[in-house]
Design a protein around this nucleic acid. Structure first.
Length: 414
DNA sequence: TCTGGGGTCCTAGGACCC
DNA sequence: TCTGGGGTCCTAGGACCC
């Protein structure tokens, strides 16, 4: 039975998934040929591996690993700072190449995209496989990086295809051959199935993607929720997830977290939290968004989390105005004597800052001043970098003096 | 896989109302 | 003031992704 085709029709629709290989490192190698063929790691500034070249991966380097561990493991590894400006430039050029192929391009992430290529065989008078080859060639030629391409009937299948051979792969899975690729694929390697769902599948006797895909529809509906039912349909060649070419225009939430070496010192923890608030608000202002709610959380040394959600009577993205709330919230979740290793701020229920109305009780003059202050702050940050202005550390002082009305602002001119 | 940072979507269950 | 039945809205938390 597992040798019977799962899907018998070919190319009702055709989706291409493009996934750049070790993208961040590849960009570095493309701009600095001396790095080619060597174990290279990006993420020096954070002290953890953000991306590793295939040479480094072969030596056992993994994402999230500490840099000092990498150094110990293979001292010859070249460690460099990440340069997001550079990567997004490469990304934009890659997406532009894809848009030259079809207008239906979805930028899924900085290094991944889906393209709806349905019907383009006729237009370009070549096979879908040939289209994939051309894309790879152009990207290699123009950007000097390699990508893995997968082509199949749906997004989920195209993802499986692009992952099938990496790096520099090109895999086309027509309907009649889908079963062959799903047969030996563990179910948790399907996009959207994580290890929790995989554990549930195991209880139901499902281990491979093919076993899942072959389950009858009513079985799937009975035993799984909507997301899994959709994945089941996609595996069976029925398109549920459309390629959406609309660029991201906004955020539902903005968050900033920070991990540090464990400390029980309340001033230090509070300062970290304020730094998070600063960063998150800065990003919100850049997108002209204001939060209606604020979530603060602290994570203890043993990974316990305590959080509080604050509703703002008047939404705003100015830390100076938010700090009284933040201080109160902090007091509620901070436990003296407990060591913390992470703080975080989430801005949620975001609305456009153009639509907000300030309440009648607020002092318009003061408001105008704060607005002007942050306009100045933002332009300085944009010009000189993120670290120039913070109000994090100065909170320590006012906090100690127990008269935290408006914390002073720190100006770090280096 | 001993855990970095930034997101999205879905669902169960409670509160509240008729 | 114990009891039906049904709807909506909201929240916390889970699960997953790059």
């Amino acid at each position: 039975m597992s040798n019977q085709p799962l899907i018998i029709f070919d190319w009702h629709n055709a989706i291409m998934h493009i996934d750049a290989d070790a993208f961040f490192v590849a960009c570095e190698q493309a701009t600095n040929p001396r790095l080619l063929g060597k174990p290279v790691v990006v993420g020096k500034e954070r002290g953890i591996v953000t991306a590793a070249s295939y040479e480094a991966k072969e030596l056992g380097v993994k994402r999230g690993m500490r840099i000092w561990e990498v150094k110990r493991l293979c001292p010859e590894t070249i460690v460099i700072n990440s340069d997001y400006e550079k990567y997004s430039l490469f990304s934009m050029r890659m997406m532009a190449i894809l848009r030259g192929l079809s207008p239906l391009v979805e930028e899924y992430s900085i290094d991944e995209a889906f393209v709806d290529i349905t019907g383009l065989r006729r237009y370009y008078r070549c096979s879908y496989e040939e289209l994939g080859r051309r894309v790879k060639e152009r990207i290699k030629k123009e950007l000097g990086i390699s990508v893995s391409v997968g082509i199949s009937l749906t997004k989920v299948l195209a993802k499986i295809a692009s992952r099938h051979k990496k790096p520099d792969g090109l895999t086309v899975i027509p309907g009649r051959q889908v079963h062959r690729y799903l047969k030996s694929l563990p179910v948790e390697e399907v996009w959207g199935i994580g290890h929790n769902t995989a554990a549930w599948c195991a209880k139901l006797g499902i281990r491979t993607a093919l076993e899942f895909a072959r389950k009858p529809e009513d079985f799937v509906r009975r035993n799984f929720a909507k997301p899994l039912y959709e994945i089941w349909q996609e595996l069976n060649g029925k398109q549920v997830y459309l390629v959406s070419p609309d660029p991201k225009t906004s955020y539902k939430s903005i968050s900033k977290v920070q991990t540090f070496s464990p400390t029980a010192d309340r001033f230090t923890v509070y300062a970290h939290l304020n730094a998070n608030l600063d960063d998150a608000c800065f990003k919100a202002r850049r997108w002209q968004l204001v939060p209606q709610r604020l979530i603060l959380f602290l994570r203890t040394q043993d990974y316990q989390e305590r959080a509080i959600e604050l509703k703002l009577t008047s939404p705003c993205a100015y830390p100076l105005m938010l700090s009284p709330f933040v201080q109160k919230g902090f007091e509620e979740i901070f436990q003296p004597g407990v060591a913390y290793r992470q703080t975080g701020v989430v801005l949620t229920h975001l609305i456009s800052s153009r639509n907000i109305q300030f309440s009648l009780f607020e002092d318009p003059v003061k408001l105008k001043r704060i607005e002007r202050l942050y306009q100045a702050v933002d332009s300085l940050k944009i010009k000189l970098g993120d670290e120039v202005l913070t109000n994090g550390l100065c909170c320590q002082r006012s906090f100690k003096e127990n008269r935290l009305k408006i914390p002073l602002m720190n100006i770090n001119l280096r």
